[in-house]
Amino acid sequence: MNNIKKYFLPVLILYLALMCLYVSYLFIIDDYNIMKSIYQPYKTFIQLSPFNNWNIFITILKGIFGVAGFIKYMINRKLINYFNTLFLVMTVFEIVFQLCNQIVQFKNLSIYVDLVSTIFTAILFLVIGFYYFKNAKIKEVIPQILLGISLTVISYHLH
């Protein structure tokens, strides 16, 4: 289990952060298609706030924070750092917002695709969060958690 936290978890966070940046790029150049997302794993993990919440800011921020967290990990060999915590917190709260949107607006069968991907993403980040925060000291990550919640809420209101 130590090897998972030491080697696999930082690479997984980097991969997910790069996918955030890639999906943001696709969205900016108008190549993003939410209906194709079930067939493309890099799009199912981040549904850019479906329905009327086309929100690109949070995905760009998550990508930048995840890459910065990996770079900080490579320099200091400290997995629990400011940027990785922001990446995880923002993603978790985005999942919470998306699940609320899915439950409130679940009136159309095509929305089921987004609900399934959101649930799979929630499960993925529960596992990642468990291994990430397992040995974290809560007092050290409270500022990042509050900043991550604030950035997520602000980002959702910017669309």
Rank of each mutant, 00 (worst) to 15 (best):
M1T: 04
N3T: 08
K5D: 03
Y7L: 08
L9Y: 01
P10Y: 01
P10Q: 01
V11N: 06
L12Q: 01
L12F: 02
L12W: 00
L14M: 07
L14S: 05
Y15L: 10
L16K: 02
A17Q: 03
L18F: 11
C20D: 13
C20Q: 11
C20T: 03
C20I: 02
L21T: 06
L21V: 02
L21N: 10
Y22D: 07
V23A: 10
S24K: 01
S24R: 03
S24D: 10
Y25I: 12
I28M: 13
I28S: 13
I28N: 10
I29R: 12
D31P: 01
N33H: 11
N33V: 08
N33L: 11
M35E: 13
M35R: 12
K36N: 12
K36T: 05
Y39S: 15
P41A: 05
Y42C: 09
K43D: 06
K43C: 09
K43L: 13
T44M: 14
Q47D: 03
L48W: 03
S49G: 10
S49P: 03
S49M: 02
S49L: 02
S49K: 03
N52A: 05
W54C: 05
N55W: 01
F57D: 11
F57V: 11
F57H: 14
I58Q: 11
T59Q: 10
G63T: 04
I64S: 15
G66V: 06
G66D: 10
G66T: 03
G69T: 04
G69Q: 03
K72N: 12
K72P: 00
R77V: 01
L79N: 01
I80N: 05
N81V: 00
Y82Q: 04
F83E: 02
T85W: 07
L88P: 09
M90C: 14
T91E: 06
V92G: 12
F93R: 09
F93D: 05
V96S: 07
Q98H: 13
Q98G: 14
L99Y: 05
L99S: 09
L99M: 12
N101I: 05
Q102W: 08
Q102P: 02
I103D: 06
Q105V: 11
Q105F: 15
Q105I: 08
L109T: 14
S110D: 12
Y112N: 11
Y112R: 11
Y112S: 14
V113G: 12
L115W: 12
L115D: 08
T118F: 07
T118N: 14
T121H: 03
I123K: 00
L124F: 00
L124K: 00
L124D: 00
F125H: 01
L126T: 02
L126R: 00
L126P: 00
Y131R: 00
Y131C: 01
Y132P: 09
Y132T: 03
F133K: 04
E140W: 06
E140R: 04
P143L: 06
Q144Y: 09
I145S: 13
G148C: 07
S150F: 15
T152D: 11
T152E: 11
S155I: 07
Y156V: 03
H157I: 12
L158G: 07
L158R: 07
L158T: 14
H159Y: 14
